[in-house]
Design a binder for these strands. Structure first.
Lengths: 221, 221
DNA sequence: CACAAAATTGGTCATTTGACCAATTTTGGT
DNA sequence: ACCAAAATTGGTCAAATGACCAATTTTGTG
């Protein structure tokens, strides 16, 4: 999983390393993963090509480091942006609103992230990074939900995980639609629908918990 | 939008053209868009490199043609696989099951499709193709829903479109999760949750229609 | 300050890659 | 069968690209 650079780490080295990742992010934002060369990245970072190769064993290692950075950045940004809420329903609403707000403010970054996720999926040595990415995002929402559920008792841990996955799937799908054909108003309606649906899903799970009937989970039709 | 080849079209030409696309699909399946060269594609198609360039103006045009092919293939496969249903709820269930079944049977193809969608999004001359893709899939589900709604009167055209978008977003998101970290059982639970949620969303719209109150759409919280 | 480790740099290299062209073969209509 | 158009092919090319190394400069620690 590690996208290790090279040699030991000095203070200056770490700074340059970040600088390169930042430059990579900028270069990747213009033109995408396929069109970005190591020279583009070096230029974007204000660094000589050889310096880039000193800090990263290969272009591939660098790209994976960028994805890791993006994951960290996204999770911490979202974690900060979500405040306390009274119950699960409110928590779902706030979390989805916060998430959608962040994603739409960083659309270009999200395209890069999708590209890098697929890139990682293709590499035998990095397929785990894609899995880690989704684990991280699901855990993020799960933690937020559980913070409330621990107080209200509406959901257990497994329930929170299921709801988190549901939220992530919905927001991911809506983001793809927004990227393919931007339409803020329509997407907002989509988010509202997702909020209501998630709340319904969560309260369904809560009811199952109060009345733990044997057999299948509740599904219509 | 056209990914036009070259010259006029003879019978043989069209056959070879398809053959190249098929070979491209195979080559792309192994290694992904980033790693696939025109030589790989030509080899996969059993064709000389120059032949490839005779039929397609550029690698880019070829890749976009592959995406178009993939879209056609997917929509027609799904259209065939969905039978008649009694009401909207059943239609939603059948459509999502059919869709999920097809997608999971063609996972590698779906990775390629995501890669190509992002590739198209990056190209100024082809961003419309990504939009076309999502329009096509949404229209597919919308048509299926409307076939039932026309009979039962449960939803109007706009409602069908909204529900179709909701379904697509959910299935897209779940597919990404499955790709990042395969887990058939968990994904199946996700699909069931999505079915229930979509049915809830649809019946909510249906109620709004019966009781067309002014103002905001129904949302909890 | 001294000096070893870390960091940076200019320059080079072998390959890969997409594109293309002149020449040849095949196709299909008459 | 004839022949123009279509299709295919081998061979070539310039550019791009990732990698790397020897040499130099900078860092920071004793």
């Amino acid at each position: 999983m590690t996208t290790a650079g090279r040699e030991q780490v000095g203070a200056k080295g770490e700074r340059t390393r970040r600088q390169i990742i930042e430059g990579a992010l900028q270069a990747l934002g213009t033109g995408g993963v396929a069109a970005t060369t190591t020279r583009d990245i070096a230029a974007g970072a204000g660094v000589r090509l050889a310096t880039l190769h000193y800090h990263f064993d290969s272009k591939s290692a660098l790209l994976l480091a960028v994805l890791e950075h993006l994951i960290d950045e996204t999770t911490s940004a979202l974690r900060e942006e979500t405040g306390d809420t009274a119950d699960i329903a409110a928590c779902i609403r706030e979390s989805l609103h916060a998430g959608w707000r962040y994603l739409t403010l960083t659309l270009e970054l999200q395209i890069v992230q999708y590209e890098l996720t697929l890139y990682a999926l293709r590499r035998d040595d990095a397929a785990g990074l894609a899995a880690y990415q989704y684990d991280a995002y699901i855990k993020l929402y799960q933690d937020i939900l559980q913070g409330v559920a621990a107080r209200t008792g509406e959901l257990d841990a497994a329930g929170c995980a299921d709801v988190a996955r549901f939220m992530l799937a919905g927001i991911d799908g809506l983001l793809l639609q927004e990227l393919a054909k931007p339409n803020k108003a329509r997407s907002s309606r989509g988010i509202e629908a997702l909020i209501a649906a998630t709340q319904g899903f969560a309260s369904g799970l809560a009811n199952d918990r109060e009345t733990p009937k044997a057999g299948t989970r509740a599904t219509r039709g």
